[in-house]
């Protein structure tokens, strides 16, 4: 059992959680993730490590409530326990030697982008960050990003923060104005990463995406997390989650992530007791 030492909301349906997991802390690096189970018989779900605190032995994760498991997670508070918590999984992001980088995050993906931006900043790289949200109420980590970015652009789909647009537009503007980067890191919903990759392609800038396929074990045992990269089959949990965005088959990945949509919907409804007393198969 893994003790939750802190829990707070960052935005509607987005929460930060600190979990005591001294083993996981030891070797954790930016870009890696954990797999957790909320309870016995719970699903195994992956979450990126936002921060590994070597002093108090906690791992910080930031998650968005989107389905049954994340709903249950959001009911928990400091003092409660997670049933299982294993990591660090996946390969760390390769940041060595990078001098100037654009980090592009979308929605909850910003939680995943943050440790990468911070590590780059800490190693002395110039970091331009673009983060996008649907509206201004959903913005989180703005201060944290501010501290580790040489330039920060925050966009909203509806313009409620005064800067309407998608992250891809902002990135394109920078590139068109002549900004050049050693690499672009992008983390967010699959369609967003797809379009960021398409945006950087004509400029020939290496673009790293963080894939989030459906996972079970996270150790290379099930193959459920497979993605096609450069016409090769890769297991995101051990070969990734970072891949070259110009080589990833995004349409396939989008389709594969929807595999269990009907089941997930039902699972969530059951949680909310919408189905109580209703017969279903």
């Amino acid at each position: 059992m893994f003790l939750i030492t802190e829990k707070r909301a960052l935005a509607p349906k987005v929460s930060l959680m600190k979990v005591k997991a001294p083993y996981v802390v030891k070797h954790a690096k930016p870009g890696q993730f954990v797999i957790l189970r909320v309870e016995e018989n719970g699903e195994r779900v992956p979450m990126t490590i936002t921060e590994a605190n070597r002093v108090d032995g906690t791992i910080t994760i930031i998650f968005q409530e989107i389905g049954a498991t994340t709903f249950k997670m959001n009911q928990l508070n400091a003092g409660d326990y997670l049933h299982d918590f294993v990591g660090p999984l996946g390969r760390a992001s390769e940041l060595e030697g990078l001098k100037k980088v654009a980090v592009v995050g979308g929605g909850v993906g910003c939680a995943i982008a943050y440790p990468v931006a911070k590590a780059l900043h800490d190693q002395g790289a110039i970091v331009h960050t673009i983060i996008g949200f649907r509206n201004k109420d959903l913005i989180f980590l703005e201060d944290e990003f501010n501290q580790c970015s040489d330039m920060l652009i925050v966009t909203t789909d509806d313009g409620s923060n005064g800067n309407q647009g998608f992250v891809t537009n902002a990135l394109k503007k920078l590139l068109e104005s002549g900004e050049r980067y050693d690499e672009v890191f992008t983390i967010g919903p699959l369609p967003m990463m797809k379009f960021v990759s398409l945006t950087t392609k004509p400029f020939n800038i290496k673009t790293i995406v963080s894939m989030n396929p459906i996972m079970i074990d996270g150790t290379g045992m099930c193959g459920g997390c497979r993605v096609t990269v450069g016409n090769e089959m890769k297991f995101a949990c051990v070969d990734g989650p970072d891949f070259d965005g110009h080589l990833v088959d995004f349409d396939e990945a989008i389709r594969r992530n929807q595999m269990y949509s009907p089941f997930e919907k039902r699972q969530l409804d059951e949680n909310c007791n919408l189905l109580r007393g209703v017969k279903h198969d």
């Binding site: 290379g220 045992m221 099930c222 193959g223 459920g224 096609t228 089959m233 396939e252 594969r256 929807q258």
Partner: peptide, 21 residues
């Protein structure tokens, strides 16, 4: 524990599992 696939077309379709999964 690492599953093999056959390397034939269509292995990435929804509904294709490794036995392990």
């Amino acid at each position: 524990g690492l599953p093999k696939f056959m390397n034939i077309p269509g292995e990435m379709l929804n509904g294709v599992y490794s036995a392990n999964e």
